[in-house]
Simulated assay, not measured.
Amino acid sequence: MAAPGPVTPQDSLDPSQPPVIEGFSSTVYGDSESFKEKFLRKTCENPLVPLGCLGTAAALTYGLYCFHRGQSHRSQLMMRTRILAQGFTVAAVLVGMAVSAMKPRH
């Protein structure tokens, strides 16, 4: 079996530039969007996910508040509510992924 020859790079690599990969685009959209624009676009595409996140945060916050005040029964109820809200959020993410996968690409 012959030994492989020395490897020489075809093009010099510039560390300040990202590598060029044929057929790969770093962004799907032509122009880059800010965090606020991306957040609003994603919220419009699947509004149930932020709603589930807010519900989860609210149940957790109120449950911790009740725990701090010594209301253990209400705190346990809020922790169970938090689990339900988390499940709702996960289900919303999965449904949103399924809907976007079924959309025709143009």
Rank of each mutant, 00 (worst) to 15 (best):
C44W: 02
R105L: 08
E45F: 03
E45L: 09
L48N: 13
V95W: 05
F24D: 01
A59K: 00
L51F: 15
Q86P: 00
M97P: 00
C66D: 10
P104V: 04
A85N: 05
T43E: 10
K103N: 10
C66Y: 05
H73C: 04
T56M: 13
D31Q: 12
S72R: 11
V28G: 09
P50A: 04
Y65G: 08
S34F: 07
V95T: 08
V99C: 05
G5L: 11
N46K: 01
G30T: 14
Y62E: 13
A3T: 15
K36A: 14
S75H: 07
E22C: 02
R82C: 15
F88I: 03
K42I: 08
A57M: 14
M79A: 15
A91T: 10
S72P: 00
P4L: 13
S34T: 15
L40C: 02
P15N: 06
K103F: 02
P15F: 08
A59W: 00
Q71W: 13
F88W: 03
S16I: 03
F67A: 13
T43L: 11
L94C: 09
A85Y: 00
L94F: 08
T81I: 01
C44D: 12
G96Y: 00
A98P: 00
T8E: 06
L48R: 10
Y62V: 14
F67H: 12
P18S: 12
Q71Y: 15
P104D: 09
T8V: 12
L77Y: 02
S26I: 11
V99Y: 04
K36L: 12
R41G: 00
A101S: 10
T8Q: 05
P15Y: 07
A2I: 11
Q71G: 02
Q86Y: 07
M97R: 04
T61W: 06
K38D: 02
Q17I: 10
S32D: 12
I21G: 01
M97W: 01
G96K: 00
M102L: 12
A3R: 14
G70N: 01
F24Q: 04
Q17Y: 02
G55S: 06
L64G: 07
F35K: 09
T61Q: 05
S32E: 13
A58K: 03
P50V: 06
Q86A: 08
D14S: 09
S75E: 08
G55W: 08
S26M: 14
P104K: 10
L77T: 04
A98H: 05
D14Q: 07
S12Y: 11
G87S: 09
K36N: 06
L77N: 04
A58M: 07
S34P: 06
A85S: 08
V28E: 08
A92E: 03
S75D: 04
M97T: 03
G52R: 01
T89N: 01
Y62G: 02
S75Q: 03
M1P: 06
E45T: 10
A59E: 11
A57G: 04
